[in-house]
Amino acid sequence: MPALKRGLTAATMVVATGTLLPVLLIPGLARADDTLDGDTQNPPPTGPKGDVDGDTISAGAGAVVFERSKNGSGESAGPIASTTSTWKPPACYYAPKYSPAQLQEHLESIWAVDSTGYEWDAKQRDHYVEGNPYTDFNKDKAGKGYWWSSYVSEGRGGEPGALDCDADTFWVDTGAPPPADIPEAITPEMLAQLAYAEILVPSTKVTLAPEGTTKVNLPTWAWLDAAEFKPVSVTASVPVLGVEATTVAEPVSLKIEPGTADATTYPASGVCTINGDNSIGEAYAAGKSDETPPCGVKYLRSSGDDSYKLRATITWKIHWTGTGVNEPVDLPDGEFGAEQDVVVQEIQAVNR
Rank of each mutant, 00 (worst) to 15 (best):
S203A: 15
L191G: 05
P188A: 04
I182A: 09
T213I: 12
E159A: 14
T169I: 09
A209K: 12
C165T: 04
A195R: 05
A192L: 01
T169D: 13
Y146Q: 06
E159W: 10
Q193Y: 14
D225V: 15
S203R: 14
T214A: 09
E198Y: 10
P178C: 05
Y151G: 00
Y146W: 13
K205M: 14
Y196S: 05
D173V: 00
A195H: 07
V152Y: 04
I186L: 05
A176G: 05
Y151K: 04
L163Y: 14
E184H: 02
V201H: 04
Y151V: 01
E189K: 05
A167K: 13
G155M: 07
A195I: 09
I182H: 07
L191R: 00
L163Q: 14
P177M: 09
G145P: 04
A209P: 08
E189G: 07
Y146C: 05
K144H: 11
A180N: 13
F170V: 07
W171Y: 05
Y151R: 02
T220C: 09
I186M: 04
S153F: 13
G175S: 03
W221D: 00
P202L: 02
A167C: 12
G158L: 10
K215R: 12
G157Q: 10
V216I: 08
W223C: 02
T174R: 06
W221K: 00
P179W: 01
A209D: 12
I182S: 10
Y151N: 03
E159R: 13
E211R: 09
P177F: 07
Y196G: 03
A209T: 11
L163R: 15
E154P: 11
L208Q: 06
L208V: 09
T220W: 08
G175Y: 03
P183Q: 03
P183T: 04
A180K: 11
N217H: 13
P202Q: 05
C165V: 02
A222R: 02
S203W: 08
W148V: 01
P202F: 01
W223A: 00
A209L: 08
D173H: 03
A192C: 00
E211Y: 08
Q193S: 14
W223Q: 02
D168T: 12
A176L: 13
K144D: 12
T174I: 11
A185Q: 06
